[in-house]
Design a protein around this nucleic acid. Structure first.
Ligand code: NAD
Ligand code: NAD
Lengths: 256, 256
DNA sequence: AGGCGCTTGTGAAGACGTGCACAAATCGCG
DNA sequence: CGCGATTTGTGCACGTCTTCACAAGCGCCT
C-alpha cells in the first residue's frame, strides 16, 4: 500500500483538527459505518451499540470498536454511541464536511450511468464537470451538466476546484487522461479502466475493475465445485461446521 | 481441465482438481497478472521475467513470484515465465476455462452500462440474462438480449446454468433479489447496491461501491491537505509541481 | 448509596501479508 | 565442459490486521 511513513506529530494539542493517522483498513470501513449510521438515523435511532452497528455494517463488533477508538470518538459505556455525533465525527475525518468536486472524464457507456447517479450527491460529492474527447459528445447535456472537451480541463479545474478525477475512458486513453488530471493538480483519481496507472508520488489512485471482481468470484466458484466433488462424509447439504473454514474478506453469511 | 504436468520436481500424483488453497490476497491479484499477461502476449512476448510482469501489473516482484509459486506455476530460472503457459495456468485456477454465465438483475441506469460492456465477454464471462421487475422494461432488447421479468429467474437459472448473479437494483430491492438468486442456486453474487447483503453460508458476495471509493480518496485528500497546512516549511502554498513528468513512478496505487 | 447489568475501550496473541536477500537452478558461450 | 550471468523460489523478519477476552466506566434500579 502506501509506502510513505509520516513521521510522528500525531500528538497535536489542537482541539478539533487533530487528524489521526488511521490504519488503511480502518479508513476503508469508515464509509460503511457511515452509511449504516445514516440508515439508523433515518430510522429514528439516537444511539447504537457496537453490536448493533457492526451488524448493520456487516463486520465484527470488536473490530468496529477498535476502528472507532482509533479516531478518538467516544461512545458511552453501558449505552453505546450517539448516532448523530458519530456521523459528524466520521464525516469530519473523511473530509466530507466540504463537498468535493468531481470531474468525470469519458462520458461513454459507463460514464453516462455515473453521470446520472445520485449516489454522488447524497454521499458528499458533486459532479462538477463531464469531459470527453469525442467532439460529437461535447455539448450533450446530461442531468443538467453539459459535456465539455477534455482539453478544457485546465480552465475547468480552476473554475470548479476539482478535487477528484474519475476516469471512465477506454484503457488505451486512461494513462493520458491521468497525466492530464495530474497536470492540473488533481491528486486523487478513481479509475474504471482496466489498466495500471502510473502517477507521481503523492497522487492516490483507486481502481474499480468489474472483471476482476467476477474473476475472484469465479475462483471461489471453481474451488467450491472442486470441493463438493471430494468429501465423502455425510450427504447433507451444508454441514454447520462451527468456527471452521475461514471467512474471506468477502462478506459471507451473517449467521449466528 | 487440461493441466500441465511438469517434468520432475513436485509432481503431485493426486487427481485432477487438486486446487491449491491460495491466500485471498493472491487470488485478488491473479486477475491483474492475467490482464498484464494478455497484453504481453498481444505484444508478441513469449516469456517474461517476474520483474517485467510485476511492473506491468503494478506490484512488487517478490510478491508476484510468491503468488505464482503458490499456485505451483513454474517459471524457468534464468529465463522467466512462459507467457502462454502462465495464462493457461491462471485461467485454470480462476476457473475461467469454462465461460461462466452471468445474470444481471436490475437493468436501470447502471445496468444498461453493464449490459453493454464488452469486458464481460473478453474476460471469461457471458451475460446470459437481463432481468428487471419493472414491466415497462421487460421486453426491451439490449445488445441482443431481451430483458425478462425477474420472476422468470427460476426457469432462466436452469436454462442458462447461471453461475454468478450481478445485482444492480436500488438498495431497497437488493436483499430481496439476493434471496431470489440464492433460492435458484446461485452461490456467487456481485452487488452494486450500497447495502449489506445477508446470505447463507457458502454463498460469496462481493461488493462494488463507488461512493466508498470516493470517500476513501476524500480521506487521503483531507489528510494531505491537513499536512501541507501545518509544516512550517516556508515554501509557497503552491505545491511545487515536479519539473518534468513523473521521474519515478513509484506506484502509490492503493491496492485491494 | 450501592450494586448490577450492560457496553466500551484495549492488551495481548495469533493470523496474515509483505519485502528483503540469497541459495539454487538454468541458459548461453567460450 | 565449465563458468558467469540471470532469474526463480523461498526462508526469515517485520509490520499490519483480526479476534478474543476482560477490566473499567456508565446508567439505572432498588
Ligand atoms: N461499461 C461498463 O459497464 C464498464 C464496466 C466496468 C469498466 N468499464 C470500463 O470503463 C471504461 C469506459 O467504458 P465504456 O463502456 O463507457 O466505454 P465507451 O467507449 O462507451 O466510452 C468511452 C468514452 O471515453 C471517451 N474518450 C476516449 N478517449 C478519451 C480521452 N483521451 N479523453 C476523454 N475522453 C475520452 C470516448 O469518447 C467515449 O465517450 C472502459 O475502460 C471500460 O473497460 C466499463
Ligand atoms: N448509476 C450508477 O452509476 C451507479 C453507480 C454505483 C452504484 N450504483 C447503484 O446501483 C444500483 C442501480 O443504480 P441505477 O442508477 O441503475 O438505478 P436505477 O433506478 O436506474 O435502476 C434500478 C433498476 O432496478 C430495477 N428494479 C427495482 N427493483 C427490482 C427488483 N426487485 N428486481 C429486479 N429489478 C428491480 C428497476 O426497475 C430499475 O430498472 C443502485 O443501488 C445504485 O446505488 C449505481
Amino acid at each position: 500500500m502506501s509506502q510513505h511513513r509520516h513521521p510522528g506529530a500525531s500528538g497535536r494539542a489542537g482541539a478539533v483538527p487533530a487528524l489521526p493517522d488511521l490504519p488503511e483498513a480502518t479508513v476503508a470501513r469508515l464509509p460503511e459505518y457511515l452509511r449504516a449510521l445514516h440508515n439508523l438515523a433515518d430510522a429514528g435511532h439516537e444511539t447504537v451499540s457496537s453490536e448493533g452497528l457492526s451488524a448493520a455494517a456487516g463486520v465484527n463488533s470488536a473490530k468496529l470498536r477498535k476502528d472507532l477508538s482509533h479516531l478518538g470518538s467516544y461512545g458511552t459505556r453501558g449505552v453505546g454511541y450517539d448516532v448523530a455525533l458519530l456521523i459528524e465525527q466520521i464525516e469530519y475525518v473523511l473530509g466530507l464536511t466540504q463537498r468535493r468536486a468531481v470531474a468525470l472524464v469519458g462520458v461513454g457507456n459507463l460514464g453516462h450511468a455515473l453521470a446520472g447517479y445520485d449516489g454522488f450527491a447524497s454521499r458528499g460529492f458533486r459532479i462538477a464537470a463531464l469531459l470527453d474527447a469525442d467532439p460529437s459528445r461535447v455539448g450533450e447535456e446530461i442531468n443538467g451538466l453539459v459535456v465539455r472537451h477534455v482539453d478544457e480541463l485546465p480552465a475547468i479545474a480552476v473554475e470548479e476546484s476539482i478535487a477528484i478525477g474519475v476516469i471512465a475512458t477506454p484503457a488505451a486513453a486512461a494513462q493520458r487522461v491521468a497525466d492530464q488530471l495530474v497536470a492540473v493538480g488533481v491528486t486523487s483519481i478513481l479509475n474504471f479502466a482496466p489498466c495500471v496507472l502510473s502517477v507521481p508520488e503523492g497522487v492516490d489512485v483507486r481502481k474499480v475493475d468489474l472483471a476482476i471482481e467476477l474473476q475472484i468470484l469465479s475462483f471461489h466458484e471453481h474451488r467450491k465445485a472442486s470441493l463438493t466433488a471430494l468429501p465423502a462424509t455425510g450427504g447433507s447439504a451444508l454441514t454447520a461446521l462451527p468456527g471452521g473454514l475461514a471467512a474471506t474478506d468477502t462478506q459471507e453469511a451473517i449467521g449466528t
